[in-house]
Design a protein around this nucleic acid. Structure first.
Lengths: 242, 242
DNA sequence: CGGAACATTGATAGAGCTCAAGGAACGTGG
DNA sequence: CCACGTTCCTTGAGCTCTATCAATGTTCCG
Protein backbone atom coordinates (compact mmCIF):
# COMPACT_ATOMS: atom_id res chain seq x y z
CA UNK A 1 0.00 0.00 0.00
CA UNK A 2 2.06 2.90 -1.23
CA UNK A 3 1.32 6.59 -1.34
CA UNK A 4 0.09 7.90 -4.66
CA UNK A 5 1.96 11.06 -5.67
CA UNK A 6 -1.46 12.52 -6.32
CA UNK A 7 -2.06 12.50 -2.60
CA UNK A 8 1.50 13.14 -1.51
CA UNK A 9 1.34 14.59 2.01
CA UNK A 10 4.48 16.65 1.44
CA UNK A 11 3.67 18.36 -1.81
CA UNK A 12 1.26 20.85 -0.36
CA UNK A 13 3.43 21.99 2.53
CA UNK A 14 4.63 25.57 2.43
CA UNK A 15 8.27 24.56 2.07
CA UNK A 16 7.71 23.20 -1.40
CA UNK A 17 6.94 24.73 -4.74
CA UNK A 18 3.70 23.98 -6.47
CA UNK A 19 3.80 21.16 -8.99
CA UNK A 20 1.95 21.17 -12.27
CA UNK A 21 -0.44 18.36 -13.12
CA UNK A 22 1.96 17.18 -15.79
CA UNK A 23 4.74 17.02 -13.27
CA UNK A 24 2.67 15.09 -10.77
CA UNK A 25 1.65 12.56 -13.33
CA UNK A 26 5.23 12.22 -14.49
CA UNK A 27 6.33 11.57 -10.92
CA UNK A 28 3.70 8.88 -10.55
CA UNK A 29 5.37 7.08 -13.39
CA UNK A 30 8.84 7.87 -12.13
CA UNK A 31 8.16 6.39 -8.73
CA UNK A 32 8.71 2.66 -8.80
CA UNK A 33 7.90 1.83 -5.21
CA UNK A 34 8.22 2.62 -1.58
CA UNK A 35 10.77 1.51 0.99
CA UNK A 36 10.39 1.38 4.75
CA UNK A 37 13.53 1.14 6.86
CA UNK A 38 13.93 0.66 10.59
CA UNK A 39 16.06 3.05 12.68
CA UNK A 40 19.84 2.99 12.32
CA UNK A 41 19.93 1.00 9.11
CA UNK A 42 22.22 1.79 6.22
CA UNK A 43 20.21 2.87 3.19
CA UNK A 44 23.05 3.67 0.83
CA UNK A 45 26.61 2.59 1.39
CA UNK A 46 29.70 4.61 0.57
CA UNK A 47 31.22 3.11 -2.57
CA UNK A 48 28.10 1.20 -3.57
CA UNK A 49 26.50 1.45 -6.99
CA UNK A 50 22.86 1.78 -6.10
CA UNK A 51 20.41 1.52 -8.97
CA UNK A 52 17.98 3.71 -7.08
CA UNK A 53 17.34 7.20 -5.83
CA UNK A 54 15.00 8.07 -3.01
CA UNK A 55 12.94 10.91 -1.71
CA UNK A 56 12.25 10.93 1.99
CA UNK A 57 8.53 10.72 2.57
CA UNK A 58 8.76 10.57 6.35
CA UNK A 59 11.38 10.04 9.01
CA UNK A 60 14.89 11.23 9.70
CA UNK A 61 18.29 10.16 8.46
CA UNK A 62 21.91 11.09 8.20
CA UNK A 63 24.42 11.36 5.40
CA UNK A 64 27.96 10.70 6.51
CA UNK A 65 31.45 9.83 5.37
CA UNK A 66 33.58 7.20 7.01
CA UNK A 67 37.34 7.70 7.13
CA UNK A 68 39.79 4.81 6.87
CA UNK A 69 40.78 5.21 10.53
CA UNK A 70 37.19 4.95 11.72
CA UNK A 71 36.40 8.64 11.99
CA UNK A 72 32.94 9.73 10.93
CA UNK A 73 31.89 13.06 9.48
CA UNK A 74 28.22 13.85 9.18
CA UNK A 75 27.55 15.62 5.89
CA UNK A 76 23.94 16.55 6.41
CA UNK A 77 20.76 15.65 8.18
CA UNK A 78 18.09 14.06 6.01
CA UNK A 79 14.52 15.22 6.50
CA UNK A 80 11.18 14.65 4.83
CA UNK A 81 11.26 15.94 1.26
CA UNK A 82 14.99 15.43 0.85
CA UNK A 83 16.33 13.64 -2.19
CA UNK A 84 19.07 11.10 -1.55
CA UNK A 85 21.25 9.08 -3.85
CA UNK A 86 21.77 11.73 -6.49
CA UNK A 87 25.46 10.92 -6.52
CA UNK A 88 24.84 7.26 -7.15
CA UNK A 89 22.33 8.21 -9.80
CA UNK A 90 24.67 10.50 -11.67
CA UNK A 91 28.24 9.60 -10.77
CA UNK A 92 27.44 5.90 -10.58
CA UNK A 93 28.73 5.50 -7.06
CA UNK A 94 27.93 6.91 -3.64
CA UNK A 95 30.69 8.95 -2.06
CA UNK A 96 29.07 8.84 1.35
CA UNK A 97 26.67 6.64 3.24
CA UNK A 98 23.08 7.35 4.17
CA UNK A 99 21.57 5.83 7.29
CA UNK A 100 18.20 6.08 8.94
CA UNK A 101 17.94 7.57 12.40
CA UNK A 102 14.25 7.02 12.94
CA UNK A 103 11.99 4.71 10.97
CA UNK A 104 11.79 6.11 7.46
CA UNK A 105 9.55 5.79 4.46
CA UNK A 106 11.18 6.47 1.12
CA UNK A 107 9.83 6.92 -2.39
CA UNK A 108 11.95 4.85 -4.73
CA UNK A 109 13.01 5.98 -8.20
CA UNK A 110 14.97 4.01 -10.72
CA UNK A 111 18.27 5.32 -11.91
CA UNK A 112 17.48 4.02 -15.39
CA UNK A 113 14.68 6.53 -15.73
CA UNK A 114 16.85 9.51 -14.94
CA UNK A 115 17.82 10.10 -18.51
CA UNK A 116 14.19 9.86 -19.53
CA UNK A 117 13.48 12.66 -17.15
CA UNK A 118 16.13 14.90 -18.63
CA UNK A 119 14.81 14.19 -22.08
CA UNK A 120 11.10 14.39 -21.55
CA UNK A 121 10.51 16.44 -18.44
CA UNK A 122 13.17 19.17 -18.45
CA UNK A 123 11.37 21.11 -15.75
CA UNK A 124 11.91 18.23 -13.36
CA UNK A 125 15.52 17.87 -14.47
CA UNK A 126 16.04 21.55 -13.80
CA UNK A 127 14.55 21.11 -10.36
CA UNK A 128 16.88 18.24 -9.65
CA UNK A 129 19.89 20.34 -10.59
CA UNK A 130 18.51 23.11 -8.46
CA UNK A 131 18.45 20.71 -5.53
CA UNK A 132 22.01 19.63 -6.23
CA UNK A 133 23.15 23.27 -6.21
CA UNK A 134 21.31 23.86 -2.98
CA UNK A 135 22.91 20.84 -1.42
CA UNK A 136 26.27 22.21 -2.39
CA UNK A 137 25.34 25.46 -0.72
CA UNK A 138 24.49 23.68 2.53
CA UNK A 139 27.75 21.81 2.41
CA UNK A 140 29.70 24.99 1.87
CA UNK A 141 28.09 26.56 4.90
CA UNK A 142 28.83 23.55 7.05
CA UNK A 143 32.39 23.50 5.80
CA UNK A 144 32.86 27.13 6.77
CA UNK A 145 31.41 26.33 10.17
CA UNK A 146 33.64 23.36 10.83
CA UNK A 147 36.70 25.06 9.40
CA UNK A 148 36.42 28.49 10.92
CA UNK A 149 34.11 28.63 13.90
CA UNK A 150 34.70 27.92 17.59
CA UNK A 151 32.88 25.10 19.36
CA UNK A 152 30.28 27.47 20.77
CA UNK A 153 29.71 29.03 17.37
CA UNK A 154 29.44 25.65 15.70
CA UNK A 155 26.86 24.32 18.10
CA UNK A 156 24.86 27.54 18.01
CA UNK A 157 25.00 27.68 14.24
CA UNK A 158 24.13 24.02 13.91
CA UNK A 159 21.13 24.18 16.18
CA UNK A 160 19.76 27.34 14.57
CA UNK A 161 20.23 25.98 11.09
CA UNK A 162 18.60 22.71 12.01
CA UNK A 163 15.76 24.48 13.74
CA UNK A 164 15.09 26.67 10.74
CA UNK A 165 15.01 23.75 8.33
CA UNK A 166 12.56 21.83 10.46
CA UNK A 167 10.47 24.90 11.05
CA UNK A 168 9.95 25.23 7.32
CA UNK A 169 8.56 21.72 7.21
CA UNK A 170 5.73 22.86 9.42
CA UNK A 171 6.87 20.76 12.33
CA UNK A 172 7.19 23.65 14.75
CA UNK A 173 5.14 23.63 17.96
CA UNK A 174 5.64 26.82 19.89
CA UNK A 175 9.42 27.09 19.96
CA UNK A 176 9.96 23.34 19.90
CA UNK A 177 10.94 21.06 17.03
CA UNK A 178 11.60 17.31 16.91
CA UNK A 179 15.24 16.32 17.44
CA UNK A 180 15.78 12.62 16.79
CA UNK A 181 19.55 13.01 16.51
CA UNK A 182 21.88 12.01 19.33
CA UNK A 183 24.71 14.14 20.65
CA UNK A 184 27.03 11.70 18.92
CA UNK A 185 25.44 12.69 15.59
CA UNK A 186 25.71 16.38 16.36
CA UNK A 187 29.35 16.05 17.39
CA UNK A 188 30.17 14.21 14.18
CA UNK A 189 28.45 16.92 12.19
CA UNK A 190 30.23 19.81 13.88
CA UNK A 191 33.67 18.24 13.88
CA UNK A 192 33.82 18.18 17.66
CA UNK A 193 34.31 15.45 20.23
CA UNK A 194 31.24 14.08 21.90
CA UNK A 195 32.35 15.32 25.29
CA UNK A 196 33.01 18.84 24.17
CA UNK A 197 29.74 18.98 22.29
CA UNK A 198 27.96 17.93 25.44
CA UNK A 199 29.68 20.60 27.52
CA UNK A 200 28.93 23.29 24.97
CA UNK A 201 25.27 22.34 24.89
CA UNK A 202 25.26 22.43 28.69
CA UNK A 203 26.42 26.05 28.60
CA UNK A 204 23.61 27.06 26.26
CA UNK A 205 21.14 25.25 28.44
CA UNK A 206 22.38 26.88 31.66
CA UNK A 207 21.83 30.29 30.11
CA UNK A 208 18.27 29.38 29.29
CA UNK A 209 18.83 29.83 25.57
CA UNK A 210 17.84 26.33 24.52
CA UNK A 211 16.38 23.11 25.79
CA UNK A 212 17.54 19.86 24.27
CA UNK A 213 16.63 16.32 25.12
CA UNK A 214 13.93 13.68 24.92
CA UNK A 215 13.81 13.99 21.17
CA UNK A 216 13.03 17.70 21.23
CA UNK A 217 14.87 20.94 20.67
CA UNK A 218 13.51 24.23 21.97
CA UNK A 219 15.08 27.56 21.16
CA UNK A 220 13.97 30.09 23.74
CA UNK A 221 16.24 32.96 22.82
CA UNK A 222 16.84 32.92 19.12
CA UNK A 223 18.49 36.33 18.78
CA UNK A 224 21.14 35.47 21.36
CA UNK A 225 21.76 32.09 19.77
CA UNK A 226 22.09 33.73 16.37
CA UNK A 227 24.58 36.21 17.76
CA UNK A 228 26.61 33.39 19.26
CA UNK A 229 26.61 31.62 15.91
CA UNK A 230 28.42 34.39 14.05
CA UNK A 231 26.17 33.77 11.08
CA UNK A 232 24.10 35.70 8.63
CA UNK A 233 20.44 34.86 8.57
CA UNK A 234 19.49 32.22 6.04
CA UNK A 235 17.18 33.18 3.26
CA UNK A 236 14.12 30.97 3.13
CA UNK A 237 12.95 30.12 -0.32
CA UNK A 238 10.58 27.43 -1.43
CA UNK A 239 12.20 24.43 -2.98
CA UNK A 240 11.07 21.87 -5.48
CA UNK A 241 10.10 18.39 -4.33
CA UNK A 242 11.14 15.39 -6.33
CA UNK B 1 39.41 37.77 -30.27
CA UNK B 2 37.79 34.90 -28.43
CA UNK B 3 38.33 31.18 -28.61
CA UNK B 4 35.90 29.29 -30.80
CA UNK B 5 34.53 26.20 -29.00
CA UNK B 6 35.40 24.35 -32.18
CA UNK B 7 39.06 24.84 -31.35
CA UNK B 8 38.75 24.72 -27.58
CA UNK B 9 42.15 23.77 -26.19
CA UNK B 10 40.63 21.98 -23.23
CA UNK B 11 38.10 19.77 -24.92
CA UNK B 12 40.60 17.26 -26.23
CA UNK B 13 42.52 16.77 -22.99
CA UNK B 14 42.29 13.35 -21.41
CA UNK B 15 40.46 14.65 -18.36
CA UNK B 16 37.36 15.43 -20.36
CA UNK B 17 34.75 13.37 -22.10
CA UNK B 18 34.35 13.53 -25.83
CA UNK B 19 31.73 15.96 -27.07
CA UNK B 20 29.45 15.29 -30.01
CA UNK B 21 29.32 17.71 -32.92
CA UNK B 22 25.84 18.72 -31.89
CA UNK B 23 27.06 19.51 -28.42
CA UNK B 24 29.97 21.58 -29.66
CA UNK B 25 27.78 23.59 -31.93
CA UNK B 26 25.30 24.12 -29.12
CA UNK B 27 28.09 25.38 -26.86
CA UNK B 28 29.18 27.83 -29.55
CA UNK B 29 25.75 29.35 -29.33
CA UNK B 30 25.64 29.11 -25.56
CA UNK B 31 28.89 30.98 -25.14
CA UNK B 32 28.23 34.69 -25.19
CA UNK B 33 31.77 35.95 -24.72
CA UNK B 34 35.06 35.75 -22.95
CA UNK B 35 36.31 37.44 -19.83
CA UNK B 36 39.89 38.08 -18.78
CA UNK B 37 40.58 38.93 -15.15
CA UNK B 38 43.80 39.99 -13.45
CA UNK B 39 45.10 38.13 -10.37
CA UNK B 40 43.29 38.51 -7.05
CA UNK B 41 40.14 40.02 -8.48
CA UNK B 42 36.65 39.04 -7.35
CA UNK B 43 34.78 37.34 -10.17
CA UNK B 44 31.59 36.50 -8.33
CA UNK B 45 30.61 37.99 -5.02
CA UNK B 46 28.85 36.18 -2.22
CA UNK B 47 25.23 37.35 -2.19
CA UNK B 48 25.35 38.79 -5.69
CA UNK B 49 22.85 37.89 -8.40
CA UNK B 50 25.14 37.34 -11.33
CA UNK B 51 23.42 36.94 -14.70
CA UNK B 52 26.34 34.82 -15.91
CA UNK B 53 28.04 31.49 -15.52
CA UNK B 54 31.62 30.82 -16.48
CA UNK B 55 33.88 28.01 -17.47
CA UNK B 56 37.56 28.45 -16.73
CA UNK B 57 39.50 28.38 -19.95
CA UNK B 58 42.86 29.10 -18.34
CA UNK B 59 44.23 30.28 -15.03
CA UNK B 60 43.62 29.54 -11.39
CA UNK B 61 41.07 30.75 -8.90
CA UNK B 62 39.50 30.16 -5.54
CA UNK B 63 35.98 29.73 -4.25
CA UNK B 64 35.56 30.88 -0.69
CA UNK B 65 33.07 31.91 1.95
CA UNK B 66 33.49 34.96 4.14
CA UNK B 67 32.17 34.84 7.68
CA UNK B 68 30.68 37.88 9.40
CA UNK B 69 33.68 38.12 11.73
CA UNK B 70 36.16 38.21 8.87
CA UNK B 71 37.08 34.55 8.78
CA UNK B 72 37.58 32.98 5.38
CA UNK B 73 36.98 29.38 4.36
CA UNK B 74 38.22 28.20 1.00
CA UNK B 75 35.62 25.91 -0.57
CA UNK B 76 37.60 24.70 -3.55
CA UNK B 77 40.38 25.54 -5.94
CA UNK B 78 39.27 26.54 -9.42
CA UNK B 79 41.23 25.11 -12.34
CA UNK B 80 40.93 25.10 -16.12
CA UNK B 81 37.75 23.33 -17.17
CA UNK B 82 35.88 24.13 -13.99
CA UNK B 83 32.39 25.58 -14.15
CA UNK B 84 31.68 28.44 -11.77
CA UNK B 85 28.54 30.31 -10.95
CA UNK B 86 26.16 27.38 -11.06
CA UNK B 87 24.63 28.53 -7.81
CA UNK B 88 23.93 31.99 -9.14
CA UNK B 89 22.56 30.41 -12.30
CA UNK B 90 20.17 28.12 -10.52
CA UNK B 91 19.51 29.50 -7.05
CA UNK B 92 19.63 33.08 -8.24
CA UNK B 93 22.32 34.12 -5.79
CA UNK B 94 25.90 33.15 -5.04
CA UNK B 95 26.48 31.61 -1.64
CA UNK B 96 30.22 32.05 -1.86
CA UNK B 97 32.69 34.29 -3.68
CA UNK B 98 35.00 33.36 -6.51
CA UNK B 99 38.29 35.16 -6.94
CA UNK B 100 41.14 34.83 -9.38
CA UNK B 101 44.55 33.82 -8.12
CA UNK B 102 46.42 34.09 -11.39
CA UNK B 103 45.29 35.86 -14.52
CA UNK B 104 42.27 33.95 -15.80
CA UNK B 105 40.38 33.62 -19.04
CA UNK B 106 36.73 32.62 -18.68
CA UNK B 107 34.10 31.54 -21.16
CA UNK B 108 30.93 33.45 -20.39
CA UNK B 109 27.45 31.94 -20.54
CA UNK B 110 24.20 33.71 -19.96
CA UNK B 111 21.95 32.56 -17.21
CA UNK B 112 18.95 33.26 -19.41
CA UNK B 113 19.95 30.48 -21.76
CA UNK B 114 20.12 27.86 -19.03
CA UNK B 115 16.52 26.88 -19.39
CA UNK B 116 16.98 26.61 -23.14
CA UNK B 117 19.71 24.14 -22.51
CA UNK B 118 17.54 21.97 -20.29
CA UNK B 119 14.81 22.07 -22.89
CA UNK B 120 16.76 21.58 -26.09
CA UNK B 121 20.03 19.93 -25.16
CA UNK B 122 19.25 17.50 -22.35
CA UNK B 123 22.60 15.80 -22.70
CA UNK B 124 24.31 19.04 -21.72
CA UNK B 125 21.86 19.58 -18.88
CA UNK B 126 22.61 16.11 -17.63
CA UNK B 127 26.31 16.89 -17.76
CA UNK B 128 25.78 20.04 -15.78
CA UNK B 129 23.95 18.13 -13.09
CA UNK B 130 26.73 15.58 -13.13
CA UNK B 131 29.19 18.36 -12.44
CA UNK B 132 27.06 19.65 -9.60
CA UNK B 133 26.98 16.19 -8.04
CA UNK B 134 30.73 15.90 -8.40
CA UNK B 135 31.25 19.27 -6.80
CA UNK B 136 29.17 18.10 -3.90
CA UNK B 137 31.37 15.05 -3.63
CA UNK B 138 34.52 17.21 -3.46
CA UNK B 139 32.97 19.35 -0.80
CA UNK B 140 32.01 16.33 1.25
CA UNK B 141 35.57 15.06 1.14
CA UNK B 142 36.96 18.41 2.18
CA UNK B 143 34.42 18.62 4.96
CA UNK B 144 35.49 15.24 6.29
CA UNK B 145 39.08 16.39 6.13
CA UNK B 146 38.53 19.62 7.98
CA UNK B 147 36.18 18.03 10.48
CA UNK B 148 38.02 14.85 11.29
CA UNK B 149 41.66 14.93 10.33
CA UNK B 150 44.73 16.25 12.15
CA UNK B 151 46.82 19.08 10.75
CA UNK B 152 49.35 16.69 9.24
CA UNK B 153 46.59 14.61 7.67
CA UNK B 154 44.84 17.67 6.31
CA UNK B 155 47.92 19.07 4.64
CA UNK B 156 48.92 15.68 3.24
CA UNK B 157 45.42 15.01 1.98
CA UNK B 158 45.12 18.47 0.52
CA UNK B 159 48.37 18.35 -1.37
CA UNK B 160 47.75 14.88 -2.74
CA UNK B 161 44.23 15.75 -3.81
CA UNK B 162 45.38 18.94 -5.45
CA UNK B 163 48.25 17.16 -7.15
CA UNK B 164 45.96 14.50 -8.56
CA UNK B 165 43.50 17.03 -9.94
CA UNK B 166 46.22 18.99 -11.68
CA UNK B 167 47.87 15.83 -12.93
CA UNK B 168 44.68 14.92 -14.74
CA UNK B 169 44.77 18.22 -16.59
CA UNK B 170 48.01 17.13 -18.19
CA UNK B 171 50.04 19.73 -16.36
CA UNK B 172 52.42 17.28 -14.73
CA UNK B 173 56.15 17.57 -15.42
CA UNK B 174 58.03 14.74 -13.77
CA UNK B 175 56.65 14.86 -10.24
CA UNK B 176 56.02 18.60 -10.33
CA UNK B 177 52.80 20.51 -10.83
CA UNK B 178 52.07 24.26 -10.83
CA UNK B 179 51.05 25.67 -7.44
CA UNK B 180 49.91 29.27 -7.73
CA UNK B 181 48.23 29.23 -4.31
CA UNK B 182 49.82 30.87 -1.29
CA UNK B 183 50.13 29.24 2.11
CA UNK B 184 47.41 31.63 3.24
CA UNK B 185 45.07 30.00 0.69
CA UNK B 186 46.01 26.51 1.77
CA UNK B 187 45.52 27.36 5.43
CA UNK B 188 42.07 28.76 4.71
CA UNK B 189 41.18 25.63 2.79
CA UNK B 190 42.32 23.22 5.49
CA UNK B 191 40.81 25.12 8.38
CA UNK B 192 44.22 25.74 9.94
CA UNK B 193 46.12 28.85 10.94
CA UNK B 194 48.72 30.14 8.55
CA UNK B 195 51.54 29.52 11.00
CA UNK B 196 50.57 25.96 11.72
CA UNK B 197 50.14 25.22 8.04
CA UNK B 198 53.62 26.54 7.43
CA UNK B 199 55.12 24.38 10.17
CA UNK B 200 53.31 21.29 8.93
CA UNK B 201 54.57 21.84 5.42
CA UNK B 202 58.05 22.30 6.83
CA UNK B 203 57.89 18.84 8.38
CA UNK B 204 56.92 17.23 5.11
CA UNK B 205 59.70 19.08 3.39
CA UNK B 206 62.33 18.06 5.96
CA UNK B 207 61.44 14.44 5.39
CA UNK B 208 61.98 14.86 1.69
CA UNK B 209 58.39 13.93 0.89
CA UNK B 210 57.49 17.12 -0.93
CA UNK B 211 58.90 20.33 -2.28
CA UNK B 212 56.75 23.42 -2.25
CA UNK B 213 57.53 26.93 -3.30
CA UNK B 214 58.16 29.21 -6.23
CA UNK B 215 54.81 28.37 -7.70
CA UNK B 216 55.51 24.65 -7.84
CA UNK B 217 54.59 21.55 -5.88
CA UNK B 218 56.63 18.39 -6.17
CA UNK B 219 55.60 15.13 -4.53
CA UNK B 220 58.64 12.91 -4.22
CA UNK B 221 57.18 10.18 -2.06
CA UNK B 222 53.55 9.74 -2.90
CA UNK B 223 52.94 6.51 -0.99
CA UNK B 224 54.19 8.00 2.25
CA UNK B 225 52.17 11.15 1.74
CA UNK B 226 49.08 9.08 1.00
CA UNK B 227 49.64 7.09 4.18
CA UNK B 228 49.95 10.29 6.19
CA UNK B 229 46.71 11.53 4.67
CA UNK B 230 44.55 8.73 6.04
CA UNK B 231 42.66 8.67 2.76
CA UNK B 232 41.41 6.20 0.23
CA UNK B 233 42.68 6.64 -3.28
CA UNK B 234 40.48 8.77 -5.47
CA UNK B 235 38.91 7.22 -8.51
CA UNK B 236 39.78 9.05 -11.67
CA UNK B 237 36.98 9.29 -14.16
CA UNK B 238 36.63 11.55 -17.13
CA UNK B 239 34.29 14.42 -16.67
CA UNK B 240 32.18 16.50 -18.99
CA UNK B 241 33.29 19.99 -19.97
CA UNK B 242 30.77 22.76 -20.19
C1' DC C 1 67.51 51.39 -1.93
C1' DG C 2 63.09 50.97 0.24
C1' DG C 3 58.82 48.80 0.57
C1' DA C 4 55.43 45.15 0.06
C1' DA C 5 54.10 40.53 0.07
C1' DC C 6 55.10 36.17 1.53
C1' DA C 7 57.59 32.63 4.28
C1' DT C 8 59.79 31.09 8.50
C1' DT C 9 60.67 30.41 13.38
C1' DG C 10 60.21 30.69 18.51
C1' DA C 11 57.50 31.38 22.70
C1' DT C 12 53.25 31.11 25.11
C1' DA C 13 48.52 30.16 26.01
C1' DG C 14 44.20 28.16 25.52
C1' DA C 15 40.54 25.55 23.18
C1' DG C 16 39.21 21.23 22.65
C1' DC C 17 40.59 16.16 23.05
C1' DT C 18 41.05 11.91 25.58
C1' DC C 19 40.44 9.15 29.47
C1' DA C 20 37.65 7.77 33.13
C1' DA C 21 33.76 7.31 35.95
C1' DG C 22 29.15 7.84 37.21
C1' DG C 23 24.12 8.86 36.35
C1' DA C 24 19.66 8.55 33.95
C1' DA C 25 16.36 6.46 31.03
C1' DC C 26 14.42 2.58 28.99
C1' DG C 27 13.37 -2.06 27.49
C1' DT C 28 13.57 -7.04 28.48
C1' DG C 29 13.16 -11.20 30.92
C1' DG C 30 12.55 -13.64 35.10
C1' DC D 1 7.33 -5.59 39.47
C1' DC D 2 12.05 -5.79 40.16
C1' DA D 3 16.87 -6.79 38.40
C1' DC D 4 19.88 -5.97 34.89
C1' DG D 5 21.89 -4.64 30.51
C1' DT D 6 22.22 -1.24 27.07
C1' DT D 7 22.36 3.18 25.34
C1' DC D 8 22.85 7.77 26.00
C1' DC D 9 24.09 11.78 28.78
C1' DT D 10 26.97 14.23 32.16
C1' DT D 11 30.99 15.73 34.66
C1' DG D 12 35.95 16.10 36.14
C1' DA D 13 41.05 15.95 35.35
C1' DG D 14 44.95 16.28 32.64
C1' DC D 15 47.22 16.84 28.45
C1' DT D 16 48.10 17.98 23.50
C1' DC D 17 47.42 20.09 19.46
C1' DT D 18 46.86 24.20 17.31
C1' DA D 19 46.11 29.29 17.65
C1' DT D 20 48.06 33.62 18.60
C1' DC D 21 51.64 36.90 19.09
C1' DA D 22 55.90 38.64 17.68
C1' DA D 23 60.04 38.96 15.28
C1' DT D 24 63.08 37.97 11.51
C1' DG D 25 64.21 36.39 6.84
C1' DT D 26 63.49 36.30 1.85
C1' DT D 27 62.16 37.62 -2.65
C1' DC D 28 60.78 40.70 -5.85
C1' DC D 29 59.64 45.02 -7.82
C1' DG D 30 59.52 49.97 -8.53
Amino acid sequence: MTTDCLHCPLRTRPAFEKMTDAEVSFMRGFKVGELVVEPRMTILMQGSKSPQLFTTLSGWGIRHTLLPDGGRQVINFVMPGDLIGLQAGLLGEMQHSVESVSRMTLCVFSRDNLWDMFKNMPQRAYDMTWLAAREEHFLGDLLATVGRRTAMQRVSWGLITYFTRVEMLDLLEGDVVPMPYKQRDLADAFGLSLVHTNKTIAKLREQGIIELGNGKLAIHDKPTLAALANADTESRVKRPLL
